[in-house]
Design a protein around this nucleic acid. Sequence first.
RNA 1: UCCUCAGUAGCUCAGCUGGUUAGAGCAUCUGACUGUUAAUCAGAGGGUCCUUGGUUCGAGUCCAAGCUGAGGAGCCA
Length: 485
Amino acid sequence: MKIMDYQKVKAIKILQEQEVGSKVKVNGWVRTKRESKNVVFIAINDGSIIYNLQIVADPAGFDENLIKDITTGACLSVQGEVVESAGGGQKVELQAEKIDLLGKADPDEYPLQPKRHSLEFLREISHLRPRTNTFSAVFRVRHAMSYAVHKFFHERGFFNVHTPIITASDAEGAGEMFRVTALDIDNPARTETGEVDYSMDFFERETNLTVSGQLEAELFALALTEVYTFGPTFRAENSNTSRHLAEFWMIEPEMAFYDLNDNMDLAEDFLKYIIRYVLEHCKEDIEFLNKRAIDEDKMKKMGERSDMTLLEHLNFVINNDFERITYTEAINILRNSKPNKKKKFQFIIEEWGADLQSEHERYLVEKHFRKPVILYDYPKEIKAFYMRQNEDGKTVRAMDILFPRLGEIVGGSQREERMDKLTQRMKECGISEEELWWFMDTRRFGTAPHSGFGLGFERFIQFVTGIGNIRDVIPFPRARGMAEF
RNA sequence: UCCUCAGUAGCUCAGCUGGUUAGAGCAUCUGACUGUUAAUCAGAGGGUCCUUGGUUCGAGUCCAAGCUGAGGAGCCA
């Protein structure tokens, strides 16, 4: 069978293995075409690698109209022989013997041009942006990170738990929720007093999209010892920033027999492991993104430029121990800091107990320590009810990991496993014990010290790729007024 | 949600204290040339100056409201 001579391969195989003489068939999308009397060069990309594969065609051997229709964005299937390149830009190229035009792209209408586009513009055409260098690189890195997350936990004996996406509890109070209902929204069932009657709804109670899988993960940690969740999370907050989404992916490990120090060790190892994995397996993409970030930086004003490149940042994180300090120590540093004394902070730190603002976190990370910082032992008043109380009666075993540019990337704690302390704290916070009876049962039966943390996957991707806006590291961003694609 | 800034060609942007026919680079098209690399050179086409209202003899430019986008804040991951 003659057709078998041409093995269907992806561009990455040709460019990496460079087997000159092999007969192959490659499918991909045209990035640019350069034409002359004697030779046509077509750069095609199939997303398998950041580099384009150069197709060389003798115009005499092909229909003139076919060559004409090969424009930026068109899809081609090309059969030919891998040959050494006579040009300087690449080692090998594909000498075309047969070209099939699978899909045209009218150059007057196709919005992507062989030039640099702004991320804001590309966001308006999210359905086409994966065909750009930047986005294909980001999403290959996203995949690698996703894979590395599972690999990291699997290698350590953790089990992945698929916690529910529809939940009935809003106990954690982690922000506004999206209601899930099958009621007729124009004419819902009502009680005698006129309120919406959720007992007539699909689940016979009020339900929402999950804001965290933590409570459910705790149940599994107290059975399988070390578990993690990695799934979508939904918050209906009206927050409009470059680091918030209404739908994002969160990684939440939960471990029995871990105290706060074990928890911090795990989080630090985890972050470093993922970054190392990306540096090792996405070399070309990171190099591309690094160059991109440098170019981007040059456009900025002098004072706003970064003093470290993306690659330097990544290496800096994996080569340094994170600074671990208590909330109390942080307050002392901030109180005596120059911006605080000179009243440069918008919020001046005066006394213990104040919640830290973004400007304070950035000062600690970017100016004072100049590396990732883990803050722990926060005042109980500014943290959630489930965090383990310290002996001082004032603080809880909470920890936040702060990264440059992003601020908080990880939030975690040792959980309160003592029934009496937990119920006392729930009363203070106005959390219903009855509703969380199943959660309380884990403290009632065979309770154990345990810890966990949550990590926003997209924020981590932002850090690793150097992309400034979180909407550009998720395929189809969901945010206030944004659900087009 | 609050504060600040922006919206002019397909894209990125210039357009001064209001003044006659609105500009550039890139992209597109046509031609030339070339083993080219986001090729190069020459030419052409391409505009509801975000919308509505107002001020004025005259508005891309000034004022008001709205819409859209970005940056920052809050909330957080």
